[in-house]
Amino acid sequence: MKIRVYYEDTDCGGVVYHSNYLNFCERARSELFFQKGLSPHKSDEFFVVKSLEADYKSPAVFGDELFVKTTLLERKSASLVLHQEIKKDEKVLFSMRVKVAYLKNAKPSKIPSEMFEVFKND
């Protein structure tokens, strides 16, 4: 998914503020669902981030066009482990490993099969 860095995404030096990389990744995960005509949220069913490990490699700045790639690493009945990278051209600026759990009525639940299809390939 392509992302343009806007002024609101940056700190006073014009560099993307660290937490916005997480927002970009979240947006990219949601967009995967929208592209398949699905929603990542159904009234009482949704994914939540359980844990993540982030690696900031190089800064993005105001005006940059970035690309977020999402890859499924591990699939369990009620959780997924994903790898997400943010690149500018071919250079990796940020990467993270994120575990998301699927909840139904606020309890871990089996992920519906159509939800797995969303993460096959970005």
Rank of each mutant, 00 (worst) to 15 (best):
M1Y: 08
I3T: 10
I3H: 14
R4L: 10
R4N: 03
R4V: 04
R4W: 00
Y7H: 14
E8Y: 12
D9H: 12
D9S: 05
T10C: 15
D11L: 07
C12K: 14
G14R: 04
G14H: 02
G14K: 07
V15K: 11
V16W: 00
V16G: 09
Y17C: 12
H18D: 00
H18M: 05
S19I: 02
S19C: 05
N20L: 10
Y21A: 09
Y21K: 13
L22H: 10
L22M: 08
N23R: 15
N23Y: 07
F24H: 07
E26L: 10
E26W: 00
R27A: 04
R27P: 02
A28V: 06
A28Y: 08
S30I: 00
S30H: 15
E31S: 12
L32H: 06
F33G: 09
F34M: 05
Q35R: 14
G37R: 13
G37M: 09
G37N: 07
L38T: 04
P40Q: 10
K42T: 14
S43C: 02
S43P: 04
S43Q: 11
E45F: 08
E45I: 01
F46I: 08
V48G: 13
V49L: 06
V49D: 05
V49P: 08
V49F: 04
K50A: 13
L52Y: 15
L52E: 09
E53Q: 14
A54I: 08
A54S: 14
A54Y: 03
D55N: 15
Y56L: 07
Y56D: 03
K57G: 05
S58Q: 13
P59Y: 06
A60F: 01
V61R: 15
F62I: 14
F62N: 12
F62D: 01
F62E: 12
F62L: 15
G63C: 08
E65M: 06
L66N: 07
L66A: 05
F67W: 01
V68F: 00
K69I: 06
K69Q: 02
L72M: 09
L72V: 04
E74Y: 08
E74P: 02
E74R: 15
R75H: 05
K76Y: 03
S77I: 03
A78W: 04
A78V: 10
S79C: 13
S79T: 00
L80R: 09
L80F: 10
L80C: 09
V81G: 06
V81L: 15
V81E: 13
Q84M: 08
Q84E: 06
E85K: 15
E85C: 08
I86Y: 00
I86T: 10
K87V: 11
K87R: 14
K88Y: 01
K88H: 09
D89A: 11
D89H: 05
E90S: 15
K91F: 01
V92D: 02
L93D: 01
L93F: 06
F94R: 09
F94T: 11
F94P: 05
S95V: 00
R97A: 03
V98S: 07
K99V: 13
K99N: 11
A101N: 11
A101Y: 10
L103C: 04
K104P: 09
A106L: 12
K107A: 03
S109F: 05
S109E: 06
S109Q: 07
K110G: 05
I111M: 06
I111G: 07
P112W: 04
E114K: 13
E114A: 06
V118P: 13
F119R: 01
F119P: 00
F119L: 03
N121Y: 05
N121Q: 09
